[in-house]
Amino acid sequence: MSPETHITNLLHLYAELIDLGQLEAVAALFDHAEVTFGGGRVVHGGAAMLPEWRAFVKIHPCGTPRTKHVITNAIVAVDDGAHTATCRSYYTVFQQTPALPLQAIIAGRYHDTFACVGGEWRFATRDYALVDLIGDLSQHLLLPVPVQTH
């Protein structure tokens, strides 16, 4: 499998796990990563990410956030010699709850870097601060999120 496919699969695995409400598994994807949030706040590693998601993401009685993260427009650039890669992608999050009809609730961009260690690609950095469009987040987030629109 090509590095580009591995990296794209990581993006999609993230979306799948977060939509299933498997926050521990999502956090594990970032065990070796540095994550930047709005306001420039930086968190290091999956162990630090897990309480972030638990504090922010509303899990509904079904055990999920009742969302569908759709990740598109992935532009992957691999540096074979350095065993690293960059990826810019778009995300759109859809949600439906008993209180909210199906709709897009937020859209933006992920800027990620990846490292290949021991033949396995993993997240190295993620920038969560690139929010472009905000809708009704009342059924998704427990706390307001500082965002920087670009």
Results as ranks from 00 to 15, higher is better:
61 P>Y: 04
12 H>V: 09
111 H>K: 13
56 F>I: 15
44 H>R: 15
29 L>E: 06
22 Q>K: 15
53 W>N: 10
143 L>S: 07
84 T>C: 03
70 V>S: 07
78 V>M: 04
1 M>F: 12
97 T>C: 00
14 Y>G: 05
128 Y>L: 15
67 T>M: 02
55 A>T: 07
2 S>R: 12
20 L>P: 08
118 G>S: 02
133 L>Y: 13
95 Q>C: 02
44 H>T: 14
57 V>M: 00
90 Y>A: 13
80 D>V: 04
29 L>W: 07
71 I>V: 14
44 H>S: 14
41 R>E: 03
108 G>H: 00
90 Y>P: 09
12 H>L: 12
130 L>I: 13
68 K>Y: 10
56 F>G: 11
113 T>Q: 07
40 G>Y: 00
109 R>I: 10
121 W>R: 07
25 A>V: 09
108 G>P: 05
16 E>T: 14
63 G>V: 00
8 T>Q: 11
33 A>I: 12
78 V>N: 04
59 I>M: 00
118 G>C: 04
127 D>E: 00
55 A>N: 08
37 F>M: 01
23 L>I: 09
22 Q>R: 15
1 M>Q: 10
83 H>L: 07
47 A>W: 05
66 R>A: 14
61 P>K: 04
81 G>D: 14
133 L>E: 14
106 I>D: 01
33 A>Q: 09
97 T>W: 01
81 G>K: 13
20 L>Q: 15
95 Q>F: 01
75 I>Q: 14
128 Y>E: 09
45 G>H: 09
103 Q>G: 05
6 H>C: 14
34 E>T: 15
26 V>H: 05
108 G>C: 02
3 P>V: 06
